[in-house]
Computed example of a mutant assay.
Amino acid sequence: MYFYPESSFFLQAIPSHSVRRSLFEQYVKTRAEEERREKRAAHKAAIEGFRQLLDEASTDIDQHTDYRAFKKKWGNDLRFEAIERKEREGLLNERVLSLKRSAEQKAQEIRAAAASDFKTMLREREISINSHWSKVKDSLRNEPRYRSVAHEDREVFYYEYIAELKAAQRGDDHEMKARDEEDKLRERERELRKRKEREVQEVERVRQKIRRKEASSSYQALLVEKIRDPEASWTESKPILERDPQKRASNPDLEPADKEKLFRDHVKSLYERCVHDFKALLAEALSSEAATLQTEDGKTALNSWSTAKQVLKPDIRYSKMPRQDREVVWRRYVEDISRKQRHENYQEEKQRDYKT
C-alpha cells in the first residue's frame, strides 16, 4: 500500500482516533451521496435522450408500432442502449398508447360525423318509425352519404335514428301531458287565489261592517248627548260635534254622508217625540170640559188657536214643540175631534130615527 506523507501529516494533526474515524465516515457518506446524485442525473439524461430519440423517430411510430420493429431500426443508436429494456419498452408503449388514443378519438369523431350525415339523410327522406330497413336501404343505395358509412354501421345508425324518433314522440307526448298538468295546476292555483281573495274580502267586509256599526252607535250616542233641539241644523251642529274629546265625530269608518244622515234621523226622532208629546198634551188639555169654556167673545180652545195657547203654554211640552208646527198640529187635532164628534152625532140621530 502506498503511503502519502501528507496523509501522515493530517493524521498527526488529528490525534484522536474517534475524531479521525468520524471524519472518515462522514467523507464516505458524502461521497456516496454525490455518486448517487451523479447516477440519477445520468439516468435522467439518458431518459431524456431516449425521449428525444422517440421524437426524431416519430415518422416511424404509429399506433401499431411494437418494440421489436422499433429496435430493429433504431437499436444501434447510443440513446437506445443508454437505458434498460424495461424502461425503453415503457416509454415506447406510452408514446404508442397516446397515438392509439388519438387515432381512436379521431375515428370516433369521423364515425359520429358519418352518423350525423346518415341520420340527416334519413330525416330528409322523411323516414318514420313505421318504415322498414329492408325497404329503406334499397332506396338509399345510390346516396353518397349512405355509401360513405361502413356496411356494419348503416343498420346500426338506422335503428338509432328510429329510437330517437320514438323517444322524441314519447317526449312530445310527455311534454304535452306535462303542459296540461301545468295548466290545470295553474288554474287550480288561480281558483285558490280567487277564493282566498274572496274570503279575505268577505272577512274585511264583515270587519268593516262591524266597525261601521260601532262607529254609528258611538256617533248616535254623541248626538243624544249634544243635540236635543229638533230644529237644530246640520251646518251649525257639525262644528259642535267635531269638538268631541273622544273624537267620535272623526271616526274614519264613518263617511261624512253617513254622519249627516244619522244627524237628520236623530233630529227627526226628536221632532217626532215632540209631536207625540204635544199630541198627548192636546188630548189632556183640550177635553170636552175645556171645549165648553168660552171667552167673552165666544172663543174656546177648540175653535181659537190663541185661546188654546193660553191653556197649553204652562206645560213644558208646549215649549218643546217647534213654534211653526204648534198651530198646525193643533188644527189637525181639532179637525180629528170634530170629525169624531160629527160621526158620533150622526150615529145617535140614526139610532133615534130607527127607534121612532
Rank of each mutant, 00 (worst) to 15 (best):
K29I: 03
R179D: 15
D173Q: 14
G171R: 07
E155V: 10
K340L: 08
Q201F: 00
P239C: 01
A280D: 15
E236M: 01
A150E: 15
E335M: 08
A249D: 07
E48G: 07
R248D: 04
A167W: 03
Y159F: 15
E56R: 12
K29W: 02
T120L: 11
E289H: 06
I47Q: 09
A42E: 15
F50A: 11
A114K: 04
K268Q: 14
E124K: 09
E225Y: 00
A167P: 09
R101W: 02
Y161R: 04
V156K: 14
E182K: 10
Q12V: 04
E255V: 03
A113Q: 03
Q105Y: 01
G90K: 06
A291Q: 14
F9Y: 11
E143R: 03
L92W: 03
E181R: 09
L302P: 09
L192D: 14
V311I: 10
A257M: 06
Q169S: 08
R326G: 06
P314E: 12
R352N: 00
Y146L: 09
E124T: 10
L122H: 12
W305T: 06
I127H: 06
K86P: 07
T300E: 14
K71M: 11
R20E: 07
M321Y: 02
Y354Q: 12
E327G: 03
K119E: 15
K259Q: 09
W133K: 04
L23E: 15
G75Q: 03
E327W: 01
N345E: 14
L140E: 13
